[in-house]
C-alpha cells in the first residue's frame, strides 16, 4: 500500500509540474513521467497488458507525436498568446467546480471502498483477451469502428481539396 501512495504522490507531482512548467517541451516530458507512474500503478494492480499498452501507446506513440508537433511549431515567449486575467480567473473557477463535481460523484458511488476482483488474474493477456472477445465483443468492435472513422476523418481533413489544389 505504501508503494501505491508513493507512486500516487509522484503522479500528482509530475502532473502539477506539467501545468507549471514554463517550457512546453518540459511539460510534455513531465507528462511522459506522469504516464510512466500510471504504468507502474497498472503493474501493481496485476494488469500487465494494460500496463504495457499504456507504455507503448501513450508514452511511446502519442506523446512522441505531441513532442514532435511542439518541436515543429517552435513556441517561445514572444509568440505565445497571452491570456487576460479574466480568462485565468474564469479557468480557475471552472476547474474548481469540476473538481467539486468529481469528488462528489466519487463519494456518492463509494469509489474509495476497496474492490475485490473475482479473478485477480484478469489483467493477464490471455484472460483479458477472452473477456474482451466473448463478453464484450460488441462494444469492442464498435469502439474499433469509432477509431477507424476518426482516422478516416483526420485523413480527409488533412488532404487538400482536389478542386482547389
Amino acid at each position: 500500500m505504501s508503494i501505491f501512495y508513493f507512486i500516487a504522490f509522484l503522479s500528482i507531482l509530475f502532473a502539477v509540474l506539467v501545468i507549471s512548467a514554463k517550457n512546453p517541451v518540459h511539460s510534455i516530458l513531465y507528462l511522459v513521467l506522469t504516464f510512466f507512474t500510471f504504468t507502474i500503478q497498472y503493474v501493481l494492480l496485476n494488469a500487465q497488458f494494460v500496463a504495457i499498452v499504456n507504455f507503448i501507446v501513450y508514452m511511446g506513440a502519442i506523446l512522441v507525436l505531441f513532442l514532435y508537433t511542439l518541436m515543429l511549431i517552435n513556441l517561445n515567449k514572444d509568440s505565445e498568446p497571452m491570456k487576460t486575467n479574466l480568462v485565468k480567473i474564469a479557468a480557475v473557477l471552472g476547474g474548481g467546480c469540476l473538481l467539486v463535481v468529481i469528488v462528489a460523484a466519487l463519494k456518492a458511488i463509494g469509489a474509495s471502498d476497496p474492490v475485490v476482483f473475482k479473478d485477480p488474474n484478469l489483467g493477464l493477456v490471455k484472460n483479458l483477451g477472452k473477456v474482451l472477445f466473448n463478453e464484450f465483443l460488441l462494444p469492442f468492435e464498435v469502439s474499433s469502428l469509432l477509431l477507424l472513422s476518426a482516422m478516416v476523418g483526420a485523413v480527409l481533413l488533412a488532404t487538400k481539396d482536389p478542386k482547389t489544389a
Binding site: M59, G60, A61
Partner: peptide, 18 residues
C-alpha cells in the same frame, strides 16, 4: 520471463526515440 515479453520489447523500442 514476463508474459508480455514481446510487448515489452516494443515498449523499449518506442522509448528509444526519446
Amino acid at each position: 520471463d514476463i508474459n508480455v515479453g514481446l510487448l515489452y520489447i516494443f515498449g523499449v523500442v518506442s522509448l528509444g526515440v526519446y
